[in-house]
Design a binder for these strands. Structure first.
Length: 324
DNA sequence: GTTCTAGAAC
DNA sequence: GTTCTAGAAC
């Protein structure tokens, strides 16, 4: 709920396409005016709907699209919900902006994609993934890849199985797109709630889906899909399971103990069993329903103090100013 | 990853 | 009796 975007125009030159830019106009409304079903149902990472039904003009007929979707999910996929390699399917599409619907794909560039998380754990939650083949910076039009598909399996393989230059290029491109997604989120926060709040960007130490992905998630953590202690712990930036991308950037600046760092990632699973406490105020919370009430209160408090501040000073103090 | 449900916690 | 979690199944 609440994780839907009004139409957003990206002003960054790094982004080459988005479905809204390229598709005929129905897609413009998909993000901006989702129906209640789209709002509440997960968007489509897992369902594989509308993936590369390579026929012409997928989006021209809504009815046809829906029929296809249901046919595909019932006959081809026994499991309801996301397939564990849905992201890899996306990442290897030669033409994602033509193959993915606007409710799945947020942004695409020559090197990366940003997609809606199918089970968002906050009001805003997106995934940024590197595409394969991953073209070199020196020749973005090339069909060559600076790294193998296997090296894009997860953060571990990025850190250990790529050349230092490829590693830096991949992480830099992912970071750039994540920053762009954050800007879009902040625009939407202002439009929908009148103020901005924190956005976290990072990897999971132990990912649940194949193909490395960077989470871009708002720090409210208010979402019907957040159902367990492990869900909440997996996004706490202070626990060690969620690795902020800034930290990974520091790791590659001095990679002398990279192997130790990667080994530590594998041991991170037990962190998910950490007792449930609020990630904002550290208060112990006995169960998930109480956490939800608690987080809702934090959100309303933040909102009212931000709105008061804006009323007094005409603008919101940016998070940068708060830190420095 | 999600869904389902038995049994623990209240 | 109801709520909630955690583990099995998918």
């Amino acid at each position: 709920m609440g994780n839907c975007f009004a139409p957003i125009s990206s002003n960054s030159s790094s982004t080459e396409t988005s479905p809204r830019d390229t598709a005929p106009n129905p897609s413009t409304t998909q993000i901006g005016e989702p129906n209640e079903e789209q709002r509440l149902q997960p968007t489509s990472i897992g369902s594989n709907r509308e993936i590369s039904s390579s026929g012409p003009s997928r989006r021209q007929s809504t009815t046809l699209g829906r029929l296809n979707k249901h046919k595909r999910t019932s006959s081809l996929f026994s499991m309801v919900g996301p397939s564990l390699d849905a992201l890899r399917n996306y990442a290897t599409l030669p033409n994602p902006q033509n193959s993915l619907s606007a409710s799945t794909l947020l942004l695409s560039s020559k090197t990366c994609l940003a997609v809606f998380d199918a089970y968002p754990k906050a009001k805003y939650h997106f995934l940024v993934l590197p595409r394969y083949p991953f073209p070199p910076q020196s020749d973005p039009e090339s069909k060559e890849s600076i790294t193998s598909l296997n090296s894009l399996n997860d953060l571990k393989s990025i850190l250990l199985k790529t050349t230092p230059s490829a590693r830096e290029e991949i992480l830099q491109n992912m970071n750039n797109m994540a920053n762009e997604v954050e800007e879009m989120i902040r625009d939407e926060m202002l439009k929908s709630e009148g103020f901005e709040w924190k956005v976290d960007i990072g990897f999971h130490a132990i990912p649940s889906m194949k193909h490395v992905h960077l989470h871009v998630i708002s720090d409210d953590r208010i979402s019907p899909s957040l159902k367990t202690k492990k869900h909440h712990n997996s996004f706490r930036p202070d626990l060690g399971f969620f690795i902020p991308i800034m930290e990974v950037q520091r790791w590659i600046e001095d990679d002398s103990n990279m192997q130790e760092r990667v080994d530590a990632l594998s041991g991170a699973e037990q962190l998910l069993n950490t007792p449930l406490t609020c990630h904002k105020c550290d208060e112990f919370i006995s169960n998930i329903p109480k956490l939800k009430t608690h987080l809702e209160k934090h959100f309303q408090d933040e909102r009212s103090s931000a709105l008061k501040h804006i009323a007094r000073h005409g603008r919101q103090r940016s998070s940068d100013e708060e830190i420095f």
